[in-house]
Amino acid sequence: MGEGNDLLMTLSQALAARADAAKSSVAAIRGRHGSLSGVLWRSDVLVTSAQSLPKRERYDVALAAGQDQVATPAGVDVTTNIAVLKLATALQVHPLVGRVPNTGELVSAYGAGHAGSVTARLGSVIAVGDEWHSRTGGRIDRRLSLDIRLSRAEEGGPIFDMSGGFVGMSTFGPYRSVIAIPASTLERVVPMLLQHGHIARGWLGIALQPVAIPEPFRNETGQSAGLMATSVKADGPAAKAGVLAGDILVSVDGKATRRFRNILSSLDSDSVGRHIELRLIRSGAVQTLSLTIEARPKE
């Protein structure tokens, strides 16, 4: 076989070389039943998928590069699905250089088997979209959907583009679709988790349900949809402001709550302590309440 001059051979060897290089960025986090993968973020920091990480005091970690290690939890943010573990001893790692891929580009997802050996998957970027908010309110800088299949054990590992640029951490979206938590989101969240163990976020203490605004109020509010309070946490910020279950929120600080993300953008980490104005419909009248945002209690 012609070496080097055959296109498929060249491609195949290049992919194998990349998998070998990815070794120093991958680890297996062992559980009782199977394991989960993680990204070696820094010499002593491992990043993984919060939704699949069991709660423990300590974790056994097997590194693709060889050694076994012990790690302790350093912080979790379920809203962005990022968990951070601290390794007992520092290792040599490749610095990760974040990059946003283009739609259609080839990418590789790496994981680790139970013993730590590296696993590799090749696929492409289905779509690169705008910023989005998770169900729990976390802001993810970009929507990165990938045409890759992963086993459960491979979730949480790094995704690299073909130039070695770090695309992000792999995780399962709805229906086991594979998405990446972008490098830029990790860069924003991981340092905060290392410092505080959690992400400070604004909190209203309220459960909301999108509803159609009843006909008579559509003209007055200029909106056809709003958010109905289905429950209000006792002594929470909304309760203190006088919000009652059944109230329909139509705007926050003049911004229509027609969209869920409008309200989430008012609750970023610097929102704590800020006063906001809630416009709502209650028993046949539109009224305004003033609320002071508090920090979300630790879970």
Binding site: W132, P174, P210, A212
Partner: peptide
């Protein structure tokens, strides 16, 4: 269910209280 986006529903399909 996986890690997914907050729902956005078409206004005309939302239910009234």
């Amino acid at each position: 269910e996986g890690f997914g986006a907050a729902p956005e529903v078409k206004a005309e399909l939302l239910l009234t209280p």
